[in-house]
Nucleic acid binder design. Structure first.
Lengths: 252, 252
DNA sequence: TTTCTCAAGTGGTCGGACCTCTGACCTCTG
DNA sequence: CAGAGGTCAGAGGTCCGACCACTTGAGAAA
């Protein structure tokens, strides 16, 4: 079989520092309000240059995870004080920070948004939006329904809806969902689910959109969401019970 | 009256660089897909050290406004490709990038979110949430209804609702709205509006929340939103016609 | 006691060197 | 004449070590 390799950009030093700090913060190693070590210390302890540390801290600042105060230090903030939805994405990268409850909140948010987006898309889409989707679906039809293809299909449709909504804010949030989808993919897009009807459902959704039937589009999407949310939550509950995600469980 | 001053950290070099670059990008000085000058050039042209430029670029990266590729350069992306809601906040800082249409999209998004948040808050709030608000409203009652107080009241209520919603994602988005509110404040919280009923309305909202009457809370908020959105849009239309906001208008 | 000064600690900036990756061009080879 | 590797300039990535600017608190001075 042909080699299928994924290009990976070598993570930079500041990437590594950023991820470590983010991890420590999100898992509560530094309590909110607490101060992280000064930049020189961090650099020394991490074995990197202070510049790399500073760049990492800039990124944390962009997520509102820390506030930097000249002459005083760098202080940790609650994730809930942030105004960057990406912190939630970051949280969901931390097995120890994922709980079924957090996942439930996220899925609720996504449901609300996506249902509204599809409604807006039905009302506002212009022809060029749907042409891409139509082409994609036609191309896809012949192929088998693997989990990977189902994921890509959802991603593509998600993206399309965002664009068609004609609302920049909804589109941006939708972009975030795309990333979340890829990240949480394994929870849902796996062999244990039946993805065979996915293509057909997408096709019906597209028809509803073409007909500008917002209610019908919502209904179709609602069913998809019901199914996928349930699947994700079941999987998450399993993982939580097994101690794979969720807060540290004391040794039995 | 007692002075209430907000301390502001002196903007750093990298702040300045960041803002300049963001401005140039958001106003289209560099087209999406285009490359910005290399770091050494930028540093030289801006008269700052390369480190400051790099830190600024890191922040742009965090907003998904650019992608940096080792050995190649730094490329600009469409705001609509971003997954950071803060780009929209940034857009709304650029008079030339603000249009009535963008504002309308933003307000629609806010309306949807806030109405949902108030619903969730009515269902999920715990007593401590409302206690703060109650105290605030009682304290406020005696004072006059200045635009500034009306703004602060809305900000506080906004924040409260986010916390009470019990949903991290909604809370984070709400935090963003708080910032937007302060930023767009002048469009609405000015002398030409009547803010005298604001306190009374907030009081009724609080009662509805205490009674966990989600529908009533929504209705109350809806009226507030109707009023403020209309005011903001009228003001924006005026400003757009006057050429204060919106794309550059050719000299007559 | 109160006020002032100053030193230590922390983030902010500097410049200038070197490393690594990318892409275009060059050169060798079959 | 492709197609392979080699070379080099240009871009980002990292490092060093020094100095600047702000904050705080301890200790000196009033």
């Amino acid at each position: 079989m042909a080699l299928t390799l994924q290009r990976l950009d070598a993570p930079s030093r500041s990437d590594g520092v950023f991820e470590q700090l983010r991890h420590q913060i999100l898992t509560g190693a530094v309590p909110a309000g607490g101060r992280i070590p000064n930049e020189r210390d961090l650099a020394a302890r991490l074995g990197v240059n202070r510049s790399s540390v500073r760049e990492a801290i800039r990124r944390l600042e962009g997520l509102d995870l820390v506030t930097v105060r000249h002459g005083r230090g760098t202080y940790v903030r609650h994730a809930s004080e942030s105004s960057a939805l990406q912190v939630v994405e970051a949280l969901l990268r931390e097995p120890r920070a994922i709980t079924v409850d957090l996942l439930r909140q996220t899925l609720l948010f996504r449901r609300d948004i996506v249902l509204r987006v599809v409604e807006l898309a039905a009302q506002h889409h212009r022809t060029e939006h749907l042409a891409d989707a139509r082409a994609l679906l036609d191309r896809e039809s012949a192929e088998g329904a693997t989990p990977a293809r189902a994921l890509e299909l959802d991603v593509a449709m998600n993206r399309l809806l965002g664009e068609a909504s004609g609302n920049l804010m909804y589109q941006v949030v939708t972009n975030l969902f795309t990333r979340l989808l890829r990240q949480l993919g394994p929870l849902y897009y796996n062999e244990s689910r039946d993805h065979r009807r996915s293509l057909e459902t997408h096709r019906r959704l597209l028809v509803a959109l073409e007909a500008r039937d917002a209610d019908e589009a919502r209904r179709i999407l609602e069913v998809m969401l019901d199914y996928s949310e349930q699947a994700i939550l079941e999987e998450a509950e399993r993982l939580e019970a097994a101690g794979v995600i969720g807060p540290e469980t004391p040794a039995p």
